[in-house]
């Protein structure tokens, strides 16, 4: 592993980049803060050592789910880069290492962030075509962003189809925590929604669910965000057991009726509770399900963009 220490020689440069390369995997990686609207966005580039054949922007889930999916996204990015694709990952403004406050984040600002990363990825690697991958809430962002880049292929991991279901899960998680803590003033989902209206935010397991995000998101639907121009879409359901859930089989049917080349598969991995950390389990690198998720997604994108040139 080689580490580029050039930043140390160039202290005047307002943007500092950390770089490393891995000759075994045949990849190079850069981490930097990129400018967007007077703020800085934490962004990670994973690219092949040679010329990339295309690019993929990964849109993360949010709040507790962001942490939960973090390592799988890192592994996916490295896997794609090793097969010739340049990958951009980022922290939405108001989250992670990026600037901004969580209360100012909306779907609109997340979309702006995703578009900024597309521009940055193209600038850094020279790619012309880009695809998107999104998990849970990130699926909404990825779908909307993909609609702007024809014919951007799209992979969705366990996507949120309609924001109300996401908020319902979040509020239930809060209720579960309160039950576990033996709290006497437990609030139902309806009461938490009322609190959101009244106070402007609800604390869900240490993350603020803010009214700005709620109001901006509540009328959106993933299928609408995808737009009218058909594109290849792969939906991956992550569940420990069982077949494809009806919500995803209905989505595939609806997308096909609109002309999209949509498919869905079930990946067996232990992910039944997105809001609760499972760091005590095996590392993502060691989990069969996580590896299958990464491998299947990689093969699907490689089939769309083609193999890297030797």
């Amino acid at each position: 592993m080689l580490i580029d220490r050039s930043f140390a020689l160039n202290q005047a440069d307002p943007i500092q980049t950390a770089s490393r390369s891995d000759s075994t995997l045949g990849i190079r990686e850069q981490v930097e803060f990129i400018e967007i609207g007077g703020s800085r966005l934490f962004a990670c580039l994973h690219a092949p050592l040679g010329d990339p054949v295309g690019g993929v922007v990964i849109c993360s889930p949010i709040q507790a789910e962001f942490e939960k999916n973090y390592r799988r996204e890192f592994l996916l990015a490295r896997s794609l880069a090793a097969r010739g694709l340049a990958v951009g990952r980022f922290h939405y403004r108001g989250s992670g290492n990026s600037d901004g406050d969580a209360e100012d984040a909306t779907v609109q600002t997340m979309l702006e962030d995703a578009h900024a990363v597309v521009g940055w990825l193209k600038d850094r690697t020279g790619i012309s075509e880009v695809g998107f991958a999104g998990t849970r809430w990130g699926g909404l962002v990825a779908a909307d962003a993909a609609a702007q880049y024809d014919p951007a292929p799209l992979v969705l991991w366990e996507p949120v189809l309609e924001p109300p279901s996401y908020f319902r899960d979040a509020f239930r998680s809060r209720l579960m925590r309160d039950l576990k803590d033996g709290a006497t003033n437990r609030l139902s989902s309806a009461a938490l929604r009322a609190e959101l209206e009244r106070v402007g935010f609800v604390d869900v397991l240490g993350y603020g669910v803010y009214r700005g995000l709620y109001d901006d998101a509540i009328g959106r639907r993933l299928v609408t965000a995808l737009g009218e121009r058909p594109r290849p879409v792969l939906i991956l359901q992550i569940s420990p057991e069982g077949g494809l859930r009806s919500e995803y089989s209905s989505l595939v049917t609806e997308l096909r009726s609109l002309g999209f080349a949509a498919t869905a598969e079930v990946i067996a991995d232990k992910e039944e509770a997105w809001w609760f950390a499972d760091g005590r389990g095996e590392a993502a690198e060691a989990r069969v399900g996580a590896r299958a998720l990464v491998n299947l997604t990689t093969e699907w994108f490689v089939a769309r963009f083609g193999e890297a040139r030797p």
Partner: peptide, 21 residues
């Protein structure tokens, strides 16, 4: 501070490279 005052760095620990901010 904001991200303006921060910079990401990779550094080695054993055979691995770690991210630091």
């Amino acid at each position: 501070a904001t991200a303006q005052q921060e910079r990401p760095v990779f550094f080695t620990a054993g055979g691995d490279t770690l991210l630091g901010i």
